[in-house]
């Protein structure tokens, strides 16, 4: 049995007056690669944001490594949705990756050559080194996602949260990202990914967390990724929801 690195109890969160998450309970084991799936509006992004204190919870406890959050924060990496930033911002790919090191560099200090080298290596790992000096608005969607991944890699965190990293990216990028996730897992790192494509869940993740405002089912993919649980999460006819999910790829939550 590997040790538990995240324990969530009785977590509730809301936007304005609507409860988006209610009584969420689950535990995550070290080294697991978990896909969070559920229909649009199920609270997948909110769950990640609430766990990372980017969104305030109403009730409940979130326990990372049994540490106070300030300390746990150091070992957590976060990859936001690609659409959450303005890609017209005047900066290049390398610079965005260096941002992943800001915490380590220390506030009010300048990044050194060594930091830039680390960032360049992370870009190399994502096959993006030729784009290091490219203005970020001139990158394709898939390339932007790889830059975000590189920024997360350079953080060298123990626990990664990724919000729809595969949304709207080309097949090559999807492959590259999944290879990196598997590699992270092989180093004993824990990864939770908001995922939108039910058809690839079995190939990509060893654990699944079905979410629809609360945890519908959570466990090893082999055991819990069943038609019954999918129907329970998405409600109604399964096939319709496959189609619906695909059409939503362009506008993530």
């Amino acid at each position: 049995m590997s040790k538990t690195v995240l324990k969530v109890e009785n977590l509730t969160a809301s936007y304005r007056k609507n409860y988006v998450l209610e009584d969420v309970n689950f535990e995550i084991a070290q080294g697991s690669l978990t896909g969070i799936v559920g229909p649009n509006g199920a609270g997948k992004s909110t769950l990640i944001k609430t766990l990372l204190r980017l969104h305030p919870p109403i009730t409940g406890t979130v326990d990372f490594y049994g540490l106070p959050f300030k300390d746990a924060q150091r070992v957590i990496g976060y990859v936001p949705q690609r659409g959450s930033v303005d890609w017209d911002f005047p900066t290049n790919a390398l610079d965005v990756v260096v941002m992943g090191l800001y915490g380590k560099i220390g506030w009010l200090k300048r990044p050194s050559k060594a930091h830039k080298r680390l960032a360049y290596e992370a870009l190399q790992k994502m096959g993006m080194e030729t784009y290091a000096n490219r203005q970020i608005s001139q990158l394709s969607g898939g390339q932007q996602q790889r830059v975000f991944l590189a920024r997360a890699l350079v953080q060298d965190a123990d626990f990664y949260f990724m919000d729809e990293p595969l949304a709207g990216v080309d097949a090559a990028t999807e492959k590259a990202i999944m290879a990196i996730l598997k590699e992270l897992k092989s180093y004993g790192k824990t990864v939770m990914v908001v995922h939108h494509d039910l058809q690839t869940v079995e190939d990509y993740f060893d654990h699944v967390l079905f979410l629809n405002r609360t945890v519908v089912k959570h466990g090893k993919t082999l055991q819990v990724f069943t038609k019954e649980n999918i129907t329970k999460t998405y409600g109604g006819n399964l096939r319709i929801h496959f189609a619906e999910e695909e059409s939503h790829v362009v506008h993530p939550l």
Binding site: L52, Q73, Y78, P80, T91, R110
Partner: peptide, 22 residues
């Protein structure tokens, strides 16, 4: 000038900035 790097990440990606402790 002094907080140049902090301004950059605060303006470009605030939620990531908060994630790394800003």
């Amino acid at each position: 000038f002094v907080g140049f790097k902090e301004w950059k990440i605060y303006l470009f990606d605030p939620s990531f900035a908060k994630g790394i402790g800003l």
